[in-house]
């Protein structure tokens, strides 16, 4: 049984179909990258898993159970955490308050403390700035805070929407290194990225989504060698 299964998922925004029946599986412990161009349906996929948008057809199973009849906030207590596009931190709350809030569903005080010290050991910058307003952080620090917040929810599955957006290449490297570490310590990750190169480097498997359909899938190293992926993504890389 996969940790996450999207079966024939169809989503539309009004009359426009955004996803035409996509099927994705994520096994426990995996890091899976979902690649695609702007508007291909990557964010829509994550937003449907988080139950932020209604689903037309198909099913989403988490840990073998359908989560279609749950609302967004109930998903978090199941163990799914979504780091949204643009990070979505709360700018007028302090770093600490941002982290505290995301432990809302965790009842065990010891676990909260443990998670917090783990986050601070991975992101020492956040500890240095814990009493600072989150809105005053740099883009990279805000991304760290967004990932830290997801860790505070004590999740089994972390969904990340373009964590590299707006970051310098150096910071992107740092963030991806941390994501790999988090994955290695047992958290399953589904990563949405336009930066195909970086995303495939740390991934076990990948999916390529085009116009709301899965165009390619396979082990990350295969996708990296694939002609179509190379042409579509690596050719366009600015570096």
């Amino acid at each position: 049984m996969s940790l996450l299964e999207l079966n024939n998922l169809t989503v539309s925004y009004g009359p426009i179909k955004a996803l035409h029946g996509i099927t994705i599986r994520v096994e426990e412990g995996e890091l899976v990258s979902l690649l695609g161009a702007n508007g291909a349906g990557k964010s829509t996929t994550l937003r449907s898993i988080s139950r932020l948008i209604p689903i037309l057809e198909g099913d989403i199973l988490f840990n073998g159970k359908s989560i279609l009849n749950l609302t967004a906030y109930q998903i978090v207590s199941l163990g799914i955490s979504h780091v949204p596009e643009g990070r979505g931190i709360f700018p007028s709350l302090t770093v600490m308050e941002n982290l505290e809030l995301s432990s809302w569903t965790v009842k065990d005080k010891k676990k909260i403390k443990h998670n917090l010290s783990r986050i601070f050991s991975i992101f020492p910058r956040l500890e240095e700035r814990k009493n600072q307003l989150a809105g005053t952080l740099s883009g990279g620090e805000q991304q760290m805070l967004a990932v830290g917040r997801a860790m505070m929810t004590d999740c089994r599955l972390m969904l990340l929407d373009e964590p590299s957006m707006g970051l310098s290449p150096l910071l992107v490297k740092e963030v991806f290194k941390v994501l790999k570490e988090i994955n290695n310590s047992g958290t399953t990750i589904l990563l949405v990225e336009q930066n195909a190169n970086m995303a495939l480097k740390i991934a076990d498997r990948g999916y390529v989504i085009e116009n709301g359909r899965i165009a390619l899938e396979g082990p990350a190293e295969h996708l990296m060698q694939d002609k179509r992926v190379k042409e579509a993504y690596f050719g366009k890389e600015k570096k």
């Binding site: 988080s50 967004a72 978090v76 949204p84 709360f90 809030l101």
Partner: peptide, 9 residues
């Protein structure tokens, strides 16, 4: 940011 609050559970 009302839209992100549900993502915190």
């Amino acid at each position: 940011n009302i839209d992100v609050v549900p993502l915190m559970g």
